[in-house]
Design a protein around this nucleic acid. Structure first.
Lengths: 190, 190, 190, 190
DNA sequence: AATGAATGAGCCTTCATTCAT
DNA sequence: CATGAATGAAGGCTCATTCAT
């Protein structure tokens, strides 16, 4: 929808909003095409199934989230501790913006009971990547700690992030994020 | 539920399994009545809608979870710290048993975008109650700490619990629960 | 639709007409339910799939055909040769009545390339039964002929019947049936 | 079809295989263009509709069948009786090769209920031509028989051919063709 | 209570065809 | 000639719910 009448991008854009706000299964193709104002056949000329769109949504959503997150973290400078803290500010900001719908990945996981389905595998990958990112910051912050120590702290920070995401969604408040943030500070300073 | 042919209880029992294993929206009334071997009309003579059954599932599921949890915690004695730790052992045990489908409340939250819908409100209540329960144990463990301190620690433990639940579901492993457990120890010890 | 508002029978009745006149695949569920003036869900509460209806159509169509055929043949008396000839009169009569759409089984076979699909297997059974019926009449007509002879003649008559059916459909004429009839006479009298 | 990149011939070739193996209606344009590895627009620049392709398939299929058949019959020499018999050997050979899908014309007839549709008319023409071909051989074989006799015998042989085609398709066996062949011998010998 | 037929909007997907490039 | 995006009706089927029995 930017310049060259890219309907595929429009579909992803529209669907991403609906998938996130309503959930993947609840959002039907009909609603998507009506919101995008296209014909049903147009949809299927761009995506061979709803699942393919779902995967694109997750992939693009992940990539965009990473880009925006990194830009946000870059603004606080090079300090890994500050960046880890800023991660939660970033979460708080997003939490309010997206009407407390939490994390698209966790939500979609909840809707995907099949252990081997592609969307679930994608989500696992993204989550693993995020944990690795936190670990890399922890490594920088605690260069003298041993491996076990680093894994424990990175893991704890990761869990606080996930917990804060879910809790802010549950209660429609950013309070849990503040608590997580303070706890991260404590974890990093002994 | 025992002998007087309580079909309502049977429906809830059957539906609870399916809702949890597959998700609320994905599970249809037809599947439920077939699994319970009853007629469609029978279902609607006991529940005026699928949502009413959903609420009953959440309510009963919560009550049973609380009962089982308390029984589990009682076995470790009176020590509040031990009980808080045991909370995570209880989670780990359930995690394995339920094929890593995580928390029914969080999962259902993901499927309930309407902020004011009854199921969502019920979930909020249950989560608030669980947080209060953790807070009560923290209060017992840290009788000399001030209110702010207690809220922070209880909140952090709650977030670790939620995070561990979600993460064990994401990765189909209990590793995250171990990390959370160690972190709770740290939080209560210094 | 006879007395006790039997919608299932109505569906079969309406669908049988459409399947036969148009073909199985070309006839959609939508057209069937509109012709029967019922809701889509009503259809699927009686048949779990279109194929199930298709099988019912074939089964019922076969049974009715056998009944009507036997009644027709009984009218010519006990003579097996007369009955074999009458078979072709019966075909001629039906051919005109059904607007030269030929044999529902052959037509459906043409639309069912999957060797193992249930409709195809049903068709094979019905055809085998018809061949056996012809064989039984030939046996009665030629009690002194050996097995090989009987098989050859019954087989030839069967092929003439199938050929006449297809040819009358192809040319929209009953002429081929007359030719077949004459040939059957020759076959039975040496 | 040889070197000048004749896509039209490619389309017909690919579609012929699919139409015959699967049926005309079941085979979609999408499948055809994917099998031919061309774009949708390319297809419609060569054929103004699916029906036009269908007609081309029938026409070309018929012409090729006639050519191959004549070549096959020429190998048995000039004797008309031998050629009529060989017709059934040719059928048997094709029956095995084409996985018992019978006659493309008969199959397509079953899918074409509209009495006046072009494909149906084409099929009638081809069938008429085949009957005439058989008649010409019968004329050669029985030069002294009267017109009525010749028509009856040619007609019977034609019906046996059609019947054998359909029956071999029904039962996935070539047995019926053998029976037809023997009957043709009898028809021509007395 | 219990039954299951009936409803019709909705599910995801494919259809043959058109048209701007 | 060739491309493939766009169309919208139709494909078979499931949904939660109602209602007469």
């Amino acid at each position: 929808m930017t310049e060259k009448s890219n309907k595929k991008a429009l579909i992803v854009e529209v669907a991403s909003k609906l998938f996130f706000e309503q959930g993947y299964h609840v959002t039907g193709i009909k609603q998507i095409i009506e919101a995008a104002d296209i014909a049903k056949g147009t949809f299927y000329s761009h995506f061979k199934s709803k699942e393919e769109l779902g995967l694109e949504w997750l992939r693009l959503g992940h990539d965009q989230w990473v880009v925006c997150r990194n830009k946000y973290l870059d603004e606080v400078g090079d300090d890994p501790e500050a960046q880890l803290i800023a991660l939660f500010d970033y979460l708080a900001q997003g939490s309010k913006a997206c009407n407390y719908r939490g994390c698209a990945f966790i939500n979609t996981l909840a809707e995907s009971p099949d252990l081997g389905c592609p969307m679930r595998k994608a989500i696992q990958d993204y989550k693993r990547g995020f944990l690795a990112f936190i670990r890399s910051l922890v490594d920088k912050r605690l260069p003298n700690a041993n491996d076990e120590e680093r894994e424990q702290r990175a893991g704890a920070i990761y869990l606080l992030f996930e917990g804060a995401t879910v809790a802010s969604q549950s209660f429609c408040k950013t309070g849990p994020i503040d608590i997580a943030k303070r706890q991260v500070s404590a974890i990093l300073s002994h």
